[in-house]
Amino acid sequence: MLRSSAAFLTKLITGTRPVWQGCDPACRERRVYFANHGSHLDFATLWATLPAEARERTRPVAAADYWNRNRFTRGIACGLFNALLISREGITRKENPITRMADALRQGESLILFPEGTRSLDGTVADFKSGLWHLAHAMPEVALVPVFLQNLNRVLPKGHVLPIPLLSTVVFGTPLPAVPGETKPEFLRRARTALTDLIPAGSFH
């Protein structure tokens, strides 16, 4: 109830329109959605545009240091969105974020990942951090779906707390095909290109 209201409210504010360009919304496969990051609304919007049934088993991967700051942020991340909080620093063998993401995928959950690692200020897409590569190696059977989030960095830019009600678009691309023998930088570059290729013609930042 609370979660479906949150999804409705998010869609109302961000006026979002999903474009299923390269994959089927109804498909029940496990997926890692990887998207560009420019706003606190990114995760909630991507999540809200999924079909209700897929929403229930899709978790965002978020930075523990940021969302564990206080009870309120922790309540939103873990209580409302069932986020998988991972540490960005001090990675130990026991607390390895890749292991925890792989565990969640093995339990049949899908994940939402922002491989740039932080929110962009101007809407450009930064180079990807290597987590996506390690995750792809740990779980090669999971579909990696690029998702381009358009305009959310204008709805709620980094450093602001009040959103303006502009219209946004969520473009779902084709899952990344596996390329054997690819090096890490090659893979990350290919993943980033798959994402930026989804930017609609005539769009701006």
Partner: peptide, 16 residues
Amino acid sequence: LREFITATPTRRADHQ
């Protein structure tokens, strides 16, 4: 207004 501003580029500095 939502459609108009969505289609015309503004920047982060215009948010307020």
